[in-house]
Amino acid sequence: MISLIAALAVDRVIGMENAMPWNLPADLAWFKRNTLNKPVIMGRHTWESIGRPLPGRKNIILSSQPGTDDRVTWVKSVDEAIAACGDVPEIMVIGGGRVYEQFLPKAQKLYLTHIDAEVEGDTHFPDYEPDDWESVFSEFHDADAQNSHSYCFEILERR
């Protein structure tokens, strides 16, 4: 099963200049909980913004210009990325925008964090048809001392 995991502000903004323009430790914990011990696929820009392999996960970098870091697996196509994951129950696609666009048609599940923030962004989550998805989990949280904005975790499964 292919799943996408993303944090989205208003207007589906997911990033600005290779960074997330908010401070939500709870979302980072949600991300870790849902990706640990699963292969993660990301684009080169996302890889560069993280700066290191995510521990406890097979890191697969999709790029037309593969790098030389041998701590991760470099691939040039969506099919190659899927094959590099091996026989696993769930593959997690973690961004960025172009990689989400490439995998959305193949995805069966979306793990979304909806952030109540209007922020400037240069990267967006692809538009998706809500009628194609069923919400199977939703959990709202107010902003607090650690988390700069209110947010809602949601899991959607393709109908």
Rank of each mutant, 00 (worst) to 15 (best):
S135M: 09
D69F: 07
P53L: 10
S150K: 08
F137Y: 03
V10T: 02
P53G: 14
W22H: 02
F125M: 14
Q102W: 15
C152G: 13
D116T: 15
V72G: 13
A26N: 02
S64H: 04
Q108W: 08
Q146F: 11
A117M: 05
E129Q: 13
F140W: 09
A9C: 08
L28K: 02
L36I: 07
E120T: 13
V88P: 13
A26W: 02
L54I: 04
R52P: 11
L104G: 03
I91Y: 12
I5K: 00
D127S: 13
I91L: 15
E118R: 15
V88W: 13
K58Q: 10
M20P: 01
M92N: 13
D116Q: 15
R33Y: 12
N37D: 07
E80T: 11
L36K: 13
Q65E: 09
K106E: 11
V119C: 14
P39Q: 07
H149E: 03
L4T: 03
H141G: 08
V136D: 10
Q65C: 11
A145D: 10
H124L: 05
I82R: 08
D142T: 09
W47P: 01
D122E: 02
V119K: 04
E120A: 04
V78L: 04
L62P: 02
H149G: 03
A6M: 12
H124Q: 15
D116G: 15
D142P: 12
F153V: 06
Q146N: 08
D70Q: 12
E48K: 13
S150W: 11
K58F: 06
C152V: 09
W74H: 11
D116F: 15
N37Y: 12
W133K: 01
E129I: 12
P130Q: 13
P66Y: 11
F137A: 11
A143H: 08
E134I: 10
Q65Y: 12
W47Y: 15
A81W: 03
V10F: 03
P55N: 12
D11R: 14
D142S: 10
W30Y: 15
Y111R: 00
H45T: 15
T73Y: 09
R159N: 12
L112A: 04
V72L: 10
A29K: 04
G15S: 00
T123W: 01
A143S: 07
N18V: 02
K106W: 11
E139Y: 05
Y128R: 11
